[in-house]
Simulated scan of single mutants.
Amino acid sequence: MYRIIKPVFFKFDPEKVHHFVVRRLKWFNDYFPLGKTILRSSFDVSIKGLEREVFGIKFRNPVGLAAGFDKNGEYIEALSNLGFGFIEVGTVTPMPQPGNDKPRMFRLQEDGAIINRMGFNNKGVDTLAERLRLLKKKDASIVIGGNIGKNKVTPNEEAVNDYIKCFDRLFDVVDYFVVNVSSPNTPGLRELQEKEPLTNLLKTLQERNSKNGISRPILLKIAPDLTNEQLDDIVEIVQTTGIAGLIATNTTIDRNGLYSAPELVGEAGGLSGKPLTSRSTEVIRYLSEKSKGAFPIIGVGGIHSPEDAKEKLAAGASLVQLYTGFIYEGPGLIKRICKELL
């Protein structure tokens, strides 16, 4: 079915199509008679043998939805009924912000890729926290990650305060946190990946984490464009700060080896999809070997097939996430991956 309707979707602006599709998915899930039942019977994957326990959390299967798809936590239930083992929302910032000017998302169909420069567009952490509070009351079984960032207007010297605000506000309504300092679409954000500011940020959040009586796993999402020396620093930072693990990787600014039209390839933003498959797997393997498997890694980047997911797990990932592959291959990809893993 998805292969039939995808060519129609791909004729229109990707951001508009995204909103069109997820709103109708939500309507079907929430209001159509037997909508939830139909989605679950068609897509849901809760099979014995697929369960994972990673950083103290039980996942019904190891295939999650990456951050960026549902920034404001508006479609979690419906997306969960498509079979995802966990949903990561955000990136969210303390204050609402519109993001970058449109158009800001571009399909590179010849490459099976997307370029986006969304710019952390979201409705703010208060709106997300309230929505998650209501959802957790309704269904606490869905594993939710909160991906947190800083507002565009916040200088890097004060960025830690933005992350603290998001952390505190979401603490009671998410199962784990992801610190996003690797998006290429907020000016200067990747400077926070440098050793000193990153160590300070993560230590501050860990100190806050330990004061709550209970703690939440904190993960760091890193860029695929880091050198091996920088990855060595990341391993050291994880071990020094005691955070739970890493997500590898975010989008890339590299444009080598693409086949799409030059005017598309030249668009600013982060590239995701098939061109990222090998590099993200390389980063996972390097981090896993360098750390001797000392911490969990969630693998994301260019997963368009069960084989892609298996390669990332074999390289050292404990879980995987989809985004661009989900858009290109459709919701059936989740079940295909899970069946292959069995």
Rank of each mutant, 00 (worst) to 15 (best):
T281H: 01
D225V: 09
T240K: 15
K211C: 03
T199D: 07
L264K: 15
D233A: 15
P306Y: 08
N212C: 03
N200I: 13
L198G: 02
E267N: 12
L220M: 06
Q230A: 13
I214L: 05
I234C: 00
S278F: 07
T251I: 09
G301L: 09
L246W: 03
I247H: 12
P306T: 11
T252L: 12
S280I: 07
G269T: 11
L220K: 00
I284Y: 03
P217V: 09
T252E: 11
G293H: 09
V238I: 15
T281D: 02
G273Y: 09
K290T: 05
L226I: 09
A248W: 11
I218L: 05
H304W: 06
I237K: 00
G293C: 07
V235W: 05
P217K: 03
Y286N: 05
L264P: 11
K195M: 14
T281N: 11
E236K: 14
A294R: 06
P197K: 10
H304V: 05
L198P: 02
E229Q: 14
L205E: 03
N209W: 03
T199F: 11
S210H: 13
R279T: 14
K203M: 14
I298D: 01
E289A: 13
A248R: 01
T204Q: 13
V265Q: 03
Q230L: 10
D233P: 11
L220F: 05
D225I: 11
A268N: 05
P217H: 07
G213Y: 07
N212Y: 00
L220E: 00
G269H: 00
G245A: 09
P224W: 04
I234A: 00
P296N: 08
L205S: 03
L276Q: 05
L287G: 01
S280K: 07
R208C: 01
R255V: 08
R279V: 15
D254H: 08
I247Q: 08
I243H: 07
Q206F: 06
G302E: 03
N228I: 07
G269D: 00
G266E: 10
P197N: 05
N200P: 02
T277H: 12
T227Q: 07
L220G: 04
I253C: 07
S288W: 08
S288E: 04
N228Q: 14
Q206A: 06
L264S: 12
N228K: 15
S260C: 09
K274T: 10
L219A: 00
R255E: 02
N209G: 04
P296H: 12
V235F: 08
T252R: 11
L226A: 00
L226H: 02
T277L: 13
E282G: 00
A261V: 12
P296F: 10
N250D: 04
G269K: 02
E307T: 02
P275R: 10
G266W: 04
L205K: 00
D232P: 07
N250K: 13
D254I: 12
G273K: 12
G245V: 10
N212W: 01
E229S: 15
N209F: 08
T227G: 05
